[in-house]
Design a protein around this nucleic acid. Structure first.
Length: 514
DNA sequence: AAAAAAG
């Protein structure tokens, strides 16, 4: 099967050919002819099945005839998240390059006025998240009475997010006679109900995309203690040691955790961005764009990034937190191994996550092996094994995750002299970068030197992982970003960077240490 | 349990 006999226009076929795609995916093959026949379509398909092109391509063909009038878009596409909406717009830009189409994106968090101006000029395709769309209609800047074709994408997710009342309102504003394309990954009763209300004699198109992960993705789980700082330490180690890591998305369950992990990785010298819904929209777009372009190899994200985002060639997905819902696991892991490429998905699993993992394994129908390597709690002196708690105090993260609330550096230092003495010693090699205000009193620097032996011992234990052949880390330097880190530590809390990956540290015998 | 979306 090729694109050429689906009924798409020459222009659209040329645009598809230009992108290198030759064969339609099953959902495209089934849906496109129905859309072109102006039938309603009920598409049951997960993301990653080529669903977006399944409506974008025929819409482009349909839109070749006719022209948009001011404030009256000809077609409307509803998306649950701003990123997905932006991504659909990119599809129109890509495949519609040869057409003079006006495509407008109506999403929150960005300038209202620009959007309004665009609406005034007339748009062929309006892509929107519900809130901002209703905002525009209520202010009178937008009339939906000219909409010929309505797309409701990711309907089940909209349901999860409480958007269905908004969707129902919007549907009342578009003509009854419009064509409707409705996409959902699942069919819960509430979704079934609204398909009956919104669709007229729909053609059902179902892609058997079992709730499973791609065979090209190597999955593993790594046990961890439940403390967040332990998980962060483990994450850093996994990042350092990951094979063939080109870029990675690190998923957390909570926005707060995203921010913490992001900041922590930054402090440890990683080149990393963040993406969650509490960030302002320009920051969200910038992070995603930098990640897509490869400028940022690492992205810490909430589930806003789990579904639908098309980021080609994500080599690794890390679950910093195991998702509580198994579907989310499938979506997250689906960010890698796309289009037949290989990928790696590594989940950090605490004892509390065991139940979730069982549910995930049941859903995907396979067991997820424990990662190879000594990630277990070891009897032979491992990271979590017989390593004394005191010697782990070197991990500054501990002051946050371990005690619940962030503590100011100074308070910490008074709390436990012996440990902090070592702490100071650890900090010494990189403390040259610190502003004077953060320098520790000399009184504390002195015991630091006396405490050097324990530090060496600990570095040895760290080197157990770091002592792997250099080649193992050879891919990582692009991830590390030593210089900016030294800038950043100024506006984060003072602390020790001795646990940076070996390749990020200046020579072991740095001036301060020699 | 949380995230997402309108300010």
């Amino acid at each position: 099967m090729s694109f050429s006999n689906l009924g798409l226009s020459e222009k659209v076929l040329a645009a598809v050919a230009a992108t290198g795609y030759t064969n339609p995916t099953p959902i495209q093959e089934q849906a496109i002819p129905h859309v072109l026949a102006r039938k309603d379509v009920l598409g049951i398909a997960q993301t990653g099945t080529g669903k977006t092109a399944a409506f974008v391509l025929p819409m482009l063909t349909i839109l070749e005839k006719g022209r948009a009038r001011a404030r009256m878009p000809r077609t409307l596409i509803l998306e649950p998240t701003r990123e997905l909406a932006a991504q659909v717009k990119e599809n129109f830009d890509r495949y519609g390059a040869g057409q003079k189409l006006n495509v407008a994106l109506l999403i929150g968090g960005v300038s209202f006025g620009d959007q309004d101006a665009k609406l005034t000029r007339g748009v062929d395709v309006l892509i929107a998240t519900p809130g901002r769309l209703l905002d525009h209609t209520e202010r009178g800047g937008l009339l939906l009475t000219g909409v010929e074709l309505l797309v409701i994408d990711e309907a089940d997710r909209m349901l999860d997010m409480g958007f269905i009342p908004d969707i129902e309102r919007i549907c009342k504003l578009v003509p009854f006679t419009r064509q409707t394309l409705f996409f959902t990954a699942t069919m819960p009763p509430e979704i079934r109900r609204i398909t009956e209300a919104f669709l007229h004699n729909p053609q059902k198109v179902e892609v058997s995309k079992p709730a499973t992960t791609a065979v090209t993705v190597t999955q593993s789980q790594v046990p961890a203690g439940r403390e967040a700082h332990e998980k962060r330490e483990l994450l850093r180690r996994l990042l350092r040691e990951a094979k063939d890591l080109k870029n990675a998305i690190i998923f957390c369950n909570r926005k707060r955790e995203v921010a913490i992990v992001h900041k922590s990785l930054q402090k440890h010298g990683f080149s990393v961005g963040a993406l969650h819904g509490d960030m302002d929209q320009p920051a969200r777009m910038a992070a995603l764009e930098q990640f897509r372009k490869g400028e940022l190899p690492l992205l810490v994200a909430s589930d806003v990034a789990a579904r639908g985002l098309d980021i080609p060639e994500v080599s690794h997905v890390f679950n910093f937190d195991v998702p509580h819902h198994p579907d989310d696991y499938v979506h997250r892991v689906g960010r890698t191994g796309r289009a037949g490429r290989t990928g790696t998905a590594i989940s950090i699993v605490t004892p509390l996550d065991q139940k979730s993992m069982v549910a995930i394994e049941k859903l995907i129908g396979q067991s997820i092996p424990r990662a190879e390597g000594d990630y277990e709690v070891h009897a032979d002196g491992g990271e979590q094994g017989d390593r004394p708690r005191e010697s782990r105090g070197r991990d500054r993260d501990r002051s946050r995750g371990g005690r619940g609330k962030p503590q100011r550096g100074r308070d910490r230092e008074r709390s436990h002299e012996p440990r902090e003495a070592r702490h100071a010693a650890d900090a010494a090699p990189s403390s040259d970068a610190k502003p004077a205000a953060e320098a520790r009193p000399a009184r504390e620097a002195r015991p630091a030197r006396e405490a050097r032996p324990p530090r060496e011992a600990r570095q040895g234990s760290e080197a157990r992982h770091g002592s792997r052949p250099q080649a193992n880390n050879s891919h990582v330097p692009s991830i590390g970003r030593p210089e900016p880190r030294r800038q950043r530590e100024i506006d984060t809390e003072p602390g020790d960077h001795s646990h940076l990956p070996a390749f990020l540290l200046r020579p072991v015998r740095s001036p301060a240490g020699a």
